[in-house]
Design a protein around this nucleic acid. Structure first.
Ligand SMILES: [Zn+2]
Ligand SMILES: [Zn+2]
Ligand SMILES: [Zn+2]
Ligand SMILES: [Zn+2]
Lengths: 162, 162
DNA sequence: GCTTGACTCTGTAGTCACTCAAGGGTTTCT
DNA sequence: AGAAACCCTTGAGTGACTACAGAGTCAAGC
């Protein structure tokens, strides 16, 4: 199949597939006479795997490790477990941070019950003092605003599923 | 004061301050004879404000709006409230997504109680099927892995606090 | 006056995981 | 044959920084 069909199957952009190839996540496929990429079932499997992992918010590096184990069926999978445990830790940590954030934001919000003039707005006042306490630690889970890239990815998801 | 002192005061990188200036968040400061940036108390206040907001995971665009209201004390602050409400929504939404993620990841983790060979690892098997259900919506709160940038910011925070 | 070292300047490139667009070539349908 | 749909490569853009190169500035000590 050609790249467009693969993209439809996996609910991905064509560009994303080419990007994975450049990045070494997808193997270089055969080419047709007209220089088109030609994919087979293994590519479909692999791309599904990658997209599943991305859906679970793993980094491409994390996914690379998992793919290695899929390619080496005889190896012990203890490292897979470790990787997953670490990643669960990443997510849990980010959630804690966001919980603390939500608390602080709601605190802040209560400082201005209803609108008045900006000079006396409790929110702006609150933000002028250093409220932020914890700061982020070393989790790699993203914050409250996905990149522009992620936002468009999200739209892509909806478009392909809805 | 010079840029280094300002950076120490605010717990920021020097480069970040220059970046904010380029981006229009910090006003262009006066220069010394030797072409050094010279800052005063207003700059300190403003940078603290910005860093507080960043600590609450707002985007620079969101912060730009808040800064506008700080500059216009006579305006009604209803938009401040709305912005904060929306941002709280961003955080809440991201938390829901991460909760769903955590559930899926723990599910997945249970498929491989203890290590065996990769060929029979329930985790790898599970990832080969499309588990991912929801997909991200339009929240702009980042995912489980902060950028490289964020991770270093985190380290900076610790270095300045510990 | 000279050196050392800490600080600062500008400008450019890199991060992550894509996304988009320009400017072409290929295939398929009518 | 012509048009539409698809594909190709290359290069640039996203957010919020960070890092580095190569140069200039400043205070202290000798
Ligand atoms: Zn992770
Ligand atoms: Zn208010
Ligand atoms: Zn927000
Ligand atoms: Zn296993």
């Amino acid at each position: 199949m050609k790249i467009g069909e693969l993209a439809r199957l996996a609910g991905t952009n064509v560009e994303t597939i080419r990007y994975y190839e450049r990045d070494g996540l997808l193997p270089v496929p055969a080419r047709s006479e007209g220089n088109y990429r030609i994919y087979g079932e293994p590519h479909v499997q692999r791309l599904f795997f990658i997209r599943s992992c991305r859906g679970l918010d793993m980094t491409l590096d994390e996914i690379r490790v998992l793919l290695h184990f899929k390619e080496s069926p005889q190896e012990n999978c203890a490292d897979v477990n470790r990787l997953l445990d670490r990643h669960i830790g990443h997510v849990a940590q980010r959630m804690q941070e966001l919980q603390e954030l939500e608390r602080q934001l709601k605190d802040l919000r209560e400082r201005c019950g209803e609108a008045r003039d900006a000079a006396h707005c409790g929110i702006l006042d609150g933000l002028s003092q250093a409220i932020v306490s914890g700061g982020k630690t070393a989790s790699h889970v993203l914050g409250s605003h996905g990149h522009a890239a992620n936002r468009r990815l999200a739209k892509g998801y909806q478009g392909n599923q809805g």
